[in-house]
């Protein structure tokens, strides 16, 4: 036995994106019986389910394809593997021109050429329904699920190398304090503050995807922004 006024209130609230918990509590505060309110919710849910069946069917394929957005759609370019080797060779060559023999960088190049393809191959991300999922790690593995609602900001950065070759780094940050950064937390204090695009995957409070094509970085950013808009967090963290 429910009243049309309560039904109207609930539907208008839902249309405005207010959470059911809030609607329920404000109705109960206004003097409605909890049982009646729940009955009204069930009634509306039944009505919407019977009404929206075709809509849900047509939306299902698109939602599946959306959750398919992953590193295969926006791959890290092969150029990323050679980024630091190229920079090191260039710096060394410039140093030689100025008469300084500076071979230390060059020693590190084989490491990059072996490690980077492995890192790239083992790095996966996916825009899942509720989480931005990242899997990474060659020897030690790490998985991270970042809820869209807690994303604090999205950064697109290009350093000079990136600018010259038309690539960009995308960084997504939440407010967690060094989530799972482990030992690197002690070594990368300055790097963290500089928020450089050096690292790949999740470290500290960020997930970084370097070496994307500029257009891919923009497209992925927009896809994440859409997800953030679709998945607001009920509880706000803002202090304002």
């Amino acid at each position: 036995m429910t009243n049309q006024k309560a039904l109207d209130y609930i539907t208008s609230g839902q249309a405005k994106g207010i959470s059911p918990v809030m609607i329920r509590s404000s109705l109960i505060q206004a003097g409605w019986q909890p049982g009646d309110v729940d009955a009204a919710f069930t009634q509306i849910a039944n009505f919407q389910a019977s009404n929206q069946t075709p809509v849900i069917n047509s939306a299902t394929p698109s939602s599946i394809s959306e959750s398919d957005i992953s590193e295969s759609d926006y791959p890290i370019t092969t150029l990323w593997i050679f980024k630091y080797p190229i920079i090191m060779v260039t710096v060394s060559l410039v140093a030689i021109i100025f008469g300084i023999w500076f071979p230390y960088f060059v020693i590190a190049i084989p490491y990059f050429l072996i490690a980077n393809p492995l890192i790239r191959k083992n790095f996966h991300f996916a825009l899942e329904k509720e989480y931005f999922a990242v899997k990474q790690g060659v020897l030690s593995k790490k998985q991270r699920n970042l809820p869209y609602g807690v994303i604090q900001n999205v950064l697109v950065k290009q350093d000079i190398f990136d600018r010259l070759f038309g690539i960009a780094a995308l960084t997504v940050e939440n407010a967690s304090e060094a989530g799972g950064s482990g030992i690197s937390k002690w070594f990368s204090k300055s790097q963290n503050q500089n928020s450089s695009a050096d690292f790949i995957g999740s470290q500290g409070n960020k997930v970084s995807i370097p070496g994307l094509k500029k257009t891919d970085a923009e497209a992925l950013k927009n896809a994440i922004l859409v997800k953030m808009k679709e998945n607001p967090l009920g509880d706000t963290q803002s202090g304002l």
Binding site: N3, K5, A6, D8, Y9, G13, K16, G17, I18, S19, V21, M22, I23, S26, L27, Q29, A30, G31, W32, Q33, D36, P232, L233, G234, D235, T236, S238, L240
Partner: peptide, 16 residues
């Protein structure tokens, strides 16, 4: 924030 907190835009109707 008011929207995500779900502050009701109008006061809830009183039950008849």
């Amino acid at each position: 924030i008011a929207k995500t907190r779900g502050i009701a835009p109008t006061s809830a109707p009183t039950p008849t």
